[in-house]
C-alpha cells in the first residue's frame, strides 16, 4: 500500500514524512519523529499514556491515524517545558508533590493536565478527577496526581497575577 506525504506541526516545529495512512499517530511520533515521550500503554484507547494535543484538544494518539492528523498541530510532552528549558509548573508540581511513581503514565497525565488547565484554569478537585478520568495510573492511587495538578493551577494563577 502506498505511502502518503504527511505534514504537521509538532511542538511548534513543522515536520514531514512518508507514512502509510494506517500508521497510528503514536507510532509516527515515536518511530518517525523519535518523540518517545508519549507512551503506548494499552493500545486500546483506555489508558491515556499516549495522550497528545491535536489541534488544541487532548486525544489518545493510539486511536488516531496519521492520515487524520495530516495538517494538524500536535503537542507532546516534549513540547510542555518552558522555552528556556526550565520545567513547566505542572512538571515541577509533579516532582514536588510526588505525582508519579513508576512514571509510565506521567507524560500522558501531564499533557492531559496541561490542556485541562487551559480549558479550566481553576478546577475543583472533582473537576480535576473528571478531567483526568481518561488517564490511568497503576501506582499512585491518583491522590498525589490531583495534589500536583491543584498546586500547578495555583502556581500558574499566581504567575499570571504577578505578570499583570
Amino acid at each position: 500500500m502506498s505511502k502518503m506525504h504527511v505534514k504537521m506541526t509538532v511542538n511548534g516545529k513543522p515536520v514531514e514524512g512518508l507514512a502509510e495512512p494506517r500508521t497510528l499517530l503514536i507510532h509516527f511520533l515515536r518511530e518517525d519523529l523519535n518523540l518517545t515521550g508519549p507512551h503506548i500503554g494499552c493500545d486500546t484507547s483506555h489508558c491515556g499514556a499516549c495522550t497528545v494535543d491535536l489541534d488544541g484538544k487532548s486525544v489518545k494518539s493510539c486511536t488516531v491515524f496519521v492520515a487524520q492528523a495530516n495538517g494538524a498541530e500536535v503537542t507532546t510532552i516534549e513540547g510542555i517545558a518552558n522555552p528556556d528549558g526550565t520545567l513547566h509548573a505542572l512538571q515541577e508540581a509533579f516532582r514536588e508533590h510526588h505525582g508519579l511513581q513508576c512514571g509510565f503514565c506521567t507524560p500522558g497525565m501531564i499533557t492531559r493536565a496541561h490542556r485541562l488547565l487551559q480549558e479550566n484554569p481553576n478546577p475543583t478537585e472533582a473537576e480535576i478527577r473528571m478531567g483526568i478520568s481518561g488517564n490511568l495510573c497503576r501506582c499512585t492511587g491518583y491522590q498525589n496526581i490531583v495534589k500536583s495538578i491543584t498546586a500547578a493551577a495555583e502556581q500558574l494563577a499566581s504567575m499570571k497575577e504577578a505578570a499583570e
Binding site: S45, K57, S58, V59, T63, R112, L116, G131, S133, G134
Partner: peptide, 9 residues
Amino acid sequence: IADPQIRNL
C-alpha cells in the same frame, strides 16, 4: 460517554 479525550473526537 467514555472519557474527555474520546469525547473530543
